[in-house]
């Protein structure tokens, strides 16, 4: 069987590879991911090292110029991108997994006490502005690493996943095949795993991408407020530093703006993949 035939058997993958939005998004995302992975190898300087004359414009020697302290912004971005990906992966995964578990159980046992309690919790967390919660949680921890930050974000970002998954589970719960499993004596866990979760895979995957993007944007805001990682570097920290040292007023656009460009491109690529996959999974939206 040729590669194309194999592809055609798996039509989601086939349509995904034919969707322009998915391809553009995925290429950008992977390029940035690879850049982040090999960052320390290709970075010309260390992110804290005095690399050259301060205030330098972007040039071949300093691709994104230098900061007010003579640090190479390009190297900083390469290292910072790594933390950004870590926050996306850890925060996004945690938020999705917690939301999934709560959503599945609340939806499958809807109407029960468990559902009431879980949904009450979800609704309360949905209404409390996450940023206020994040500020307090971060303030409690005088020393924060990137992982701590991602976990804080993950633990506060699940409520909307839980709600969305619950309503999807509700609509799947009364389908024939779920009833069949129930009659044949499958356990709740098995039904959720094999019947419900399996049928929601595409939806969950899209939710995960949004959580990934959301975790990145939240972490950047936290960094900017000054509640980022206390050691190490991230894209948000570079920009916080830049704004604190009046980089904009001094006209150092490369320091204050370029890290944000990288970040915006990354998040845009995630949204592109998400929209593209929406078209792939919903045949009515496909443009043929």
């Amino acid at each position: 069987m040729s590669f194309i035939d194999k592809l055609k058997k798996n039509d989601n993958l086939y349509f995904a590879l034919r969707n322009k939005k998915v391809i553009i998004g995925a290429v950008i995302f992977l390029a940035l991911l690879i850049t982040a992975l090999i960052g320390p190898i290709i970075a010309p300087y260390d992110y804290e090292e005095f690399a050259g004359a301060p205030y330098a414009n972007p040039s071949f020697q300093h691709l994104m110029g230098t900061s007010i302290f003579g640090r190479d912004v390009f190297s900083q971005v390469l290292y910072g991108l790594r933390s950004t990906f870590v926050v996306g992966f850890v925060g996004g995964t945690l938020g999705t997994v917690i939301g999934l578990i709560i959503g599945f159980f609340a939806g499958y046992r809807s109407g029960s006490m468990l559902d009431e309690i879980l949904m009450m919790m979800t609704n309360i967390l949905l209404v409390i502005p996450t940023i206020a919660l994040l500020i307090i949680l971060s303030a409690y921890l005088p020393y924060r690493g990137v992982i701590t930050q991602s976990m804080i974000i993950g633990f506060t970002s699940w409520p909307w996943v839980a709600r969305a998954v619950r309503s999807q589970t509700l609509s799947l719960r009364n389908k024939e095949f779920v009833n069949l499993s129930r009659i044949s004596g499958a356990s709740t866990f098995k039904i959720i795993k094999d019947d419900i979760a399996y049928n929601m895979f595409s939806y969950v995957f899209m939710v995960y991408i949004l959580q990934f993007a959301g975790a990145i944007l939240t972490s950047v805001s936290l960094d900017f407020i000054g509640l980022g990682p206390t050691k190490g570097i991230s894209l948000g920290l570079i920009m916080q530093d830049a704004v604190n040292w009046n980089a904009i007023q001094l006209g150092m656009w490369w320091w204050a703006i370029l890290p944000g460009v990288v970040l915006t491109v990354l998040v845009t690529s995630l949204y592109f993949i998400n929209t593209g996959l929406d078209e792939v999974f919903n045949p009515t939206l496909r443009e043929m």
Binding site: S221, I257, G260, V267, Y271
Partner: peptide, 18 residues
């Protein structure tokens, strides 16, 4: 629209200020 919604609020503010 995608670029707008992907950009962090403060970054867009920095852009406008600049």
């Amino acid at each position: 629209f995608y670029v707008l919604t992907s950009s962090p609020y403060f970054w867009f503010a920095v852009l406008l200020v600049f």
